[in-house]
Design a binder for these strands. Sequence first.
RNA 1: GUCCCCAUCGUCUAGAGGCCUAGGACACGGCCCUUUCAAGGCCGCGACACGGGUUCGAAUCCCGUUGGGGACACCA
Length: 570
Amino acid sequence: MTELVVTRFAPSPTGHLHVGGARTALFNWALAQKLGGHFLLRIEDTDQARNSQEAVRGILDDLAWLGIHWQEGPVHAGVGGDPRGVGPFFQSERLARYDAAIAQLVATDLAYPAFDTPEELDALRKAASAEKRAFRYVRAAGWDRSAALARMQREPHVVRLRAPNETIVVHDQVLGDIAFGPEQIDDFVLRKRDGFPTYHLAVVVDDEAMGVTHVLRGPEHLNNTPKHIALQRALGVRTPIYAHVPSIQNADGSKMSKRDKDKAARTLAQQAFAADAGLHARADAAIDAKRLAGWLGNPKSQLETSELDALERVLALDLPSVTVEDFRHAGYLPETVNNYLALLGWNPGEKLADGRDREQFSMADLAQKFALERIGRGNAKFDRAKLLAFSQEALAALADAEWLERWRSWCERYRSGVAASGAEPERVLADPARARVFAASMKSRCATLAAATAPAGPGRFALVADDAFSYDEKAVAKWLAKGEPSGFTILTSVRATIEKLAPFEPTEIEAAVAQFCEASGVGMGKVAQPLRVALTGTAASPPLGETLAVLGRAAVLARIDRCLRETRPT
RNA sequence: GUCCCCAUCGUCUAGAGGCCUAGGACACGGCCCUUUCAAGGCCGCGACACGGGUUCGAAUCCCGUUGGGGACACCA
């Protein structure tokens, strides 16, 4: 009888999923798929101090967007997971289980109550560090069990495990066997003063209760693993298979974390305020002035996610993307994020027919090919340029209709930001034929969905009103004012051709313009560039046929007229 | 400070003792294509951290050095 493979992702609800967490979730999901097992989601909300419903919702939403679905876990108002959803798996709702484990351990004298105050422990730690030795909690000599148990009934206390006096070997599937000597496992806390379990207890009890067979997690947990094994032995339960994946770092080698955004925001905000004191008024409208001042002055403080978002918006800060939501906002496809993340520390090890390594794969490929043996051991730096290149390629590979659908829903979700940039997606979306041309011409020109609406982006010209763009002076001088005949003259005559043209589609437009060139004996550039300047304000745009077709005849004529009116010297 | 982990082009990586003159991708540079901007095609630049072993033979195994990362909470 083979055991059902169960993997899990167990985030604590402190904000949107960051890339490291997303990759861990993805790997766990993939392993379960590969082995025909279950992937479950468990919210580790045992810290009463930092814990938010909003964050839970955000994480669930992030996972659902990525397409990482759980067979077992929280059921949350239509977000992600299996509709049969077993759960909810919130540790805060499972306190009875942890207490039962504690009772068992205390009864067998494998755990004991301790009454030290946080201040006392703090003093001990300081003393240890002053003497340059490692602090290790040990039960005082002459400890009286029955007195302690009696005292436990009436005094606030924590419960600690009696750490075993033995070396514990972790059989890590990525790193190999790692030995931890007894001096590295002290009598750590299992249950806090507030009655909530610590992470260590909750994780061990739940992994056992949920039948978890494989634990894939970040490297920060490696040193916790011997503690977990010690606890499993005390409890008399199995030890799952462990695998620790390397961390994801910033370009400078520091660990990639949510704090990076906060730090970058402080620096950028200070610069912005220094450059323009008037910005203070705008910032004050968005977030509490006192909070803002406190945060600016104290590098250790952090803004709430909502405050940070508000500040980012009003000051137009360009903050680094670190969470899944950031990348979604930045216009990446979920499959691209998954693909890139998976490649950070894992690869399928396949060669393509042309000799290149397989780097691009789908979720289905991942589910089929994922294997622990191919997880790398070194840390990986997050390379935004490569992600962008992946995004570019994935977007270009989409069918026009698909691109359009993705772009439409992106625009809807981030409507306010799109509007703030001055883009009006409805302008092209309103007409299916024009929308399709837009999609086709944006696909190879946009590395992200957001690029299409960006203020200086390639789709800009099609998304603004006919009188809402300005003319690049240099382009006007070079392509309209100069030459014999001048661009203005050519514009006037080509206008007549355009006015009569039907159907108004890329191929026909291209042909008509080519014919016009032929007939009037001027080169293509002499016609195309003046048209581009008149239509988009600049000399750069998609091919002429696409540019005109996207705008539609009425807009094209209106823009030519406006250009003649506004830029032609009288 | 103590403990743990890691180490191939700038970055992600392939590499399981001879297939390695170390392969691919991104980035970068050049050329081609071209009505502009892209996209695409071709070419180029570019790495086994260092020092000792083991072996007929080391990027690959062992030891040390150096460098990087992580952990040392009543956070997870």
